[in-house]
Design a protein around this nucleic acid. Structure first.
Lengths: 222, 222, 222, 222
DNA sequence: CATGAATGAGAGTTCATTCAT
DNA sequence: CATGAATGAACTCTCATTCAT
């Protein structure tokens, strides 16, 4: 019946709302935004449908609320994980660990953000894009800091840094799915830990960034 | 009204079918699979709804046909772009150029494959996963070849190579969106060309792979 | 609008369900299973279409529910009418009276059972065939009992008894339509009562059975 | 493909029309009036759909034409079978033989008349009712003649004779289905011949009528 | 006349949403 | 606030029917 253990009545509004959001995350992740029905969400939440409307007003607003909560939770998890005064590489490293740990612990929330919210058009894609932009910005800052630390000769173009950040974030997203077993094609061995996933990406990315900062570039000429 | 210019009647079946697929790609990309209505698809195609059903049978089959067509087109574009006898780095480079050129020229098709098909569950996710797996395998082979060419000391673990391939493919996917202006947060300056996008990723990735192959690894202690 | 007088809202489910079944019986009898639309049934019932689906799930299930209700009512009417301890002729007589009384009081229900359900193939024909078989069996038993009471010389062949029972049931069905004015060609005078119809058939059938049991047979040579 | 053997072109209109009617009989019997599609009928007939419309104008008219042809064929078969100058019992006997022979040889036609046409409401039920009325009238005449031949004391009431005729016709219809294996509950042994079926009914009916004419009546008091 | 393209009208079904009790 | 009754609007899909070639 309910998603939690007890079917207790008369709970404070804030608690009930969280139950509903939990149920919504579960259901949206399982069925997708359109296929998820308010009936099912209410049933999973263990409350009556009118109560869902009383608190969350509409399916759209409910989905928005879900996105906001999960977005904030993910952003907060990353923010809490980074060590703000450490050197750039350590900041990136701890941020990645936080990211992979959170997506592994909240696969449904991650699925809603990454797979559902971005694909349902205007009203929702924007909301999740904001959080993504925040992360991209953080990564961009790290890359910039790394460049300075490396004392690299030339200031890297904003355009290229933007591309690098998007590449890194995309790689991280893809690896989060991969580590959750949703990447298509199972991972050999047991599911990788957040630390291992972070290490895989960090090794790859930091090395690449390092050489870039040294001015080494690949050229088609071979 | 119609997606093309002319509202001409009585066209041969093959032509009409392509028009319908074009309309479907557009509409699925705009609205998402569930939110796209057969009514809208028919209207965009400039035909009546029954004709869509006469030729494509059902919404599911229509979506499948779209996925197959766009999948094949993308895979073919990449396949045609790579120079099969070149060294690994050049193969990867030319493949990436082909990939970004195609996704830039067919942004709706790419959106359907990347955002819609993968998130609609069993029947469709499988179809697009096959193509993604093909690409991941190609990338995996490139990484392996690079390792050999580099004469790297130790054979890289299958698990790590899988992670690297997924990271690289995820980075490419993310950059495709970024180059199409769909990454969230506009690109500074004008939209990057396929070649530029490919170079950004190639520089980043090849350098990273190179160092990895040399056995250099990032460690948190550093 | 509605089939009843009052357009009252908010009725308990059981009541509304019966109203819907009433409307369905009427509409199926008038139009036939396929030609009857759920829209019309809902309108006749004085409710919206979704409510019909909420309670009865689908057109097929609605039709099944109608068949079950009307079948059970008819079978029950016959069962209640027969005097179980009376001699065979009286049992048949009272059964027939019950049958004709019920079909006369529920002409639409009878039409649905006799004309619609039997002609709509597998799922439905089976349901009504069960009730018809029950009645045929009852008649068969009566014929057997009559034969024994008559102490007839030879045991009648199962094959012939089956034929006789089918003939008798067919005659009863035809007379039910006739008495309801649906036999084609109006009945002279006013519509016959159940008792009169039963008497017509009883006179005809019992006499015929009696002679058969006496071993008298018609032969073409005569 | 076609229902006949050869797919020959350029046949005279009359022949083509018969092929279409054959296909329609088959399809209407199999699927029912509403469920039968003009597409299927055209395909079974081995002609193009527009030709069906050119000759038969509409589904309604096609069904009407089918009813008329099958009605006429059945009526004609019965008419041809009776020996007009023979005594009443022989006329009835030969008529029944003709009826059961025809329904056994043309089960689809019989199914369309008996199961489909009568259940599709106004326009069609009337057409088949006409033929039924004709047969009922013939039977009525036989019963009247039998009464006279028997020199029975009292003139039987028109009302009762009508009932008897309807009973007899209903019995015959039921037995036709029974003999075709469509009565529900298989016939013991192999399928009865037309002659056997006719004998079963004739024995039953003639004996009953005979006693009735003798003035013997069943009374509940007995 | 065969072929194949094309459609208006409607059927069954579902769902977000509301309101009386 | 829980319950259960109720619906407007939409969606997928089908079919009889027509017309140009």
């Amino acid at each position: 019946m309910g998603v939690g253990a007890v079917k207790s009545k008369r709970m404070p509004r804030a608690v009930r709302e969280q139950q509903m959001l939990d149920a919504a995350v579960l259901t949206f992740a399982r069925r997708g935004y359109r296929a998820a029905s308010m009936d099912e969400i209410a049933e999973v939440a263990g409350v009556s449908k009118p109560l869902v409307y009383l608190y969350l007003n509409s399916k759209e607003e409910l989905f928005s609320a879900v996105i906001r909560r999960e977005s904030a939770a993910l952003a907060e998890a990353v923010r809490a994980a980074v060590e703000p005064d450490a050197p750039a590489d350590r900041q990136l490293w701890s941020g990645l660990k936080g990211f992979f740990a959170h997506t592994a612990e909240h696969p449904d929330g991650w699925a809603v953000l990454h797979q559902q919210a971005r694909t349902q058009g205007e009203p929702f894609a924007v909301e999740v894009a904001a959080m993504r932009a925040e992360i991209v910005e953080f990564v961009t800052a790290m890359i910039g800091a790394a460049a300075q630390e490396a004392g690299c000769g030339r200031e890297p173009a904003a355009r290229e840094v933007s591309g690098l950040a998007h590449a890194l974030v995309g790689a991280a997203e893809s690896l989060a799915d991969w580590a959750n077993g949703r990447g298509g094609g199972a991972v050999p061995g047991e599911r990788p830990s957040a630390k291992e996933t972070a290490a895989t990406l960090m090794n790859f990315a930091w090395a690449g960034l390092g050489r870039l900062m040294d001015g080494e570039r690949w050229s088609p000429g071979g």
